[in-house]
Structure formats: structure tokens, C-alpha cells
């Protein structure tokens, strides 16, 4: 009995240790966003001055705007392109399918810095002015492979006759896509979109190399201010953590709510 109690304690401390290791930095960051002084290590009382400062800082607000705009647009475009590509791949002959999947995996395995420098050189050699558009294009480029990779397994899990069944019942190929295929692979499309969004949202390396003309996303901004860091960054990070927590909660609770609805219908 003593042994089992000991084992339980070990387990508890192990899990607590892991959680502490993961979340203590985030918790400390959130706590010090409410600090009354500039210090990031010693507590001087509660205040919301850094939040006020954040919303008053035009540079920061512009970085948030750029980050969100690029993330939303690149997520939308890469999700559409990636999903359609995945559907195309799943209907291709084996040799073409394998080839495209391998080509698709390449940018994922390739070090980010290589992609970044490659894109930078490409934009320079084509003398495209670096700015919002180049950042958006780059983000679409590096997100799309992840969307393809998450949608493909969903397509593989479908009944191979399902699109034919829809057309057999009078649906045009477009109707079969919208009414049958897309709804069935939706979970994969949504996780692909979430992945694309987070990839774009916190990207630094590639964005840094392909942006210019004062266009900065949050990562670039934080990097450039790292020498004169102040708790506004903590305030910004806190807001992001809260948003992400909410999104995760919704994503995880949705299936439960849906199941309840189904049971209610029966």
C-alpha cells in the first residue's frame, strides 16, 4: 500500500513539474503585464498602465493590424488552395500523387531560413518592392503545404465511391464537392486553417526577410524592440494568450455540443 501511495505521489509531482515548466513562464509574463513599474522581475503593485500604453502605441497597433490582416488573408487563401490541391491529389494517379506529396513535404522539412532567403532573393531579383504583399505571398507559400498535409488523411478516409454516389443521384461535380466532399473533410480543413493561422501569426524568420518599407508584424516588432523591452509586450502577449485560450476552448467544446444536439434530435 505504501508503495502505491509513493507511486501516486511521484506521478503527481512529475505532472506538476512538467506543467510548471510549460506554464510558469507564461504565467509570469501575464502577471508582470500588470506591474506598476518597468521591471520584468520585481513586483511593484497592480496597474493597467501597460495596456493603456499598448493601445496608445501606434507602431504596436499597426503591427497587430499587419499580423492579423496577413494571418487572416493567408489562412483563407492557403486553406482554399490547399484543400482543392488535396482533393486533386487524392484523385490523381499514384505516381503523380506520390510526386506531388513529396514536393509538398519539401518546404516543411526545409529549414525556414533557407525558404526565407530564397524568397528574399526571388523578390529582389524580380525587383518586387518588399512590403505587405510580399509578406502575404510568403505566408501563403509556407502555410499551404500544412493545409494539404492535414486535409489529405481526411480524403483518404472517405468512401472511394462517395463522389460518384452524389453524381449518380444527379449532383454536378461542383454540387458533389460542396454538398458531400467538403462537409465530410471539414474537420481536416478546419485544423488545416488553424495550423495555417498560427504558423502565419507567429512567423518571424520568413517575415523578417521578405518584409520592408516599415511593414512589421508583431514578431518583427518585438525583435526590434528587444533591446529596450518593456511590459507593453507582456500586455500584448497576455491578450494573445487569452484569445488563443478562448479559441482552443471553443474548438474543443464544439464536438461535445454537436453530439448533444444530435442526441436531442433522436
Amino acid at each position: 500500500m505504501v508503495g502505491s501511495k509513493n507511486r501516486k505521489l511521484t506521478r503527481f509531482f512529475l505532472i506538476a513539474g512538467v506543467l510548471l515548466f510549460f506554464y510558469a513562464p507564461i504565467a509570469s509574463l501575464m502577471v508582470f503585464s500588470f506591474n506598476d513599474s518597468r521591471s520584468l522581475t520585481s513586483w511593484a503593485g497592480f496597474s493597467t498602465q501597460w495596456y493603456t500604453a499598448l493601445f496608445a502605441n501606434r507602431e504596436m497597433m499597426s503591427a497587430i493590424y499587419v499580423t492579423l490582416l496577413v494571418a487572416l488573408l493567408s489562412t483563407f487563401i492557403s486553406t482554399v488552395v490547399g484543400t482543392l490541391t488535396a482533393i486533386g491529389i487524392s484523385k490523381s494517379r499514384k505516381i503523380i500523387r506520390e510526386l506531388i506529396i513529396n514536393v509538398n513535404n519539401f518546404p516543411i522539412l526545409n529549414p525556414e531560413i533557407v525558404t526565407a532567403i530564397g524568397l528574399m532573393l526571388l523578390f529582389s531579383s524580380l525587383s518586387i518592392e518588399k512590403g505587405l504583399i510580399t509578406m502575404l505571398v510568403a505566408h501563403i507559400i509556407f502555410s499551404t503545404p500544412y493545409v494539404i498535409l492535414t486535409v489529405l488523411p481526411k480524403l483518404r478516409g472517405l468512401d472511394p465511391d462517395i463522389a460518384e454516389a452524389a453524381m449518380d443521384l444527379g449532383a454536378t461535380p461542383a454540387q458533389a464537392l460542396w454538398k458531400v466532399i467538403i462537409p465530410l473533410i471539414m474537420p481536416g480543413v478546419i485544423s488545416g486553417a488553424l495550423l495555417a493561422f498560427t504558423m502565419s501569426f507567429d512567423d518571424f524568420v520568413i517575415s523578417y526577410f521578405v518584409s520592408g518599407n516599415g511593414v512589421k508584424n508583431i514578431s518583427i516588432l518585438v525583435y526590434t524592440m528587444s533591446k529596450r523591452i518593456n511590459p507593453t509586450i507582456n500586455a500584448l502577449s497576455t491578450i494573445l494568450v487569452v484569445i488563443i485560450t478562448f479559441v482552443l476552448l471553443i474548438v474543443n467544446l464544439l464536438p461535445f455540443l454537436k453530439k448533444k444536439e444530435l442526441r436531442g434530435a433522436e
Partner: peptide, 14 residues
């Protein structure tokens, strides 16, 4: 004007 019953039925699971 032909309809098919597929081998694994191919019903729409959603």
C-alpha cells in the same frame, strides 16, 4: 436516368 447501389453503399455519413 440510372441510379446505383454501391458495393459499400457510399451513404453520406454527415
Amino acid at each position: 436516368e440510372i441510379n446505383t447501389v454501391f458495393q459499400r453503399y457510399a451513404l453520406f455519413p454527415h
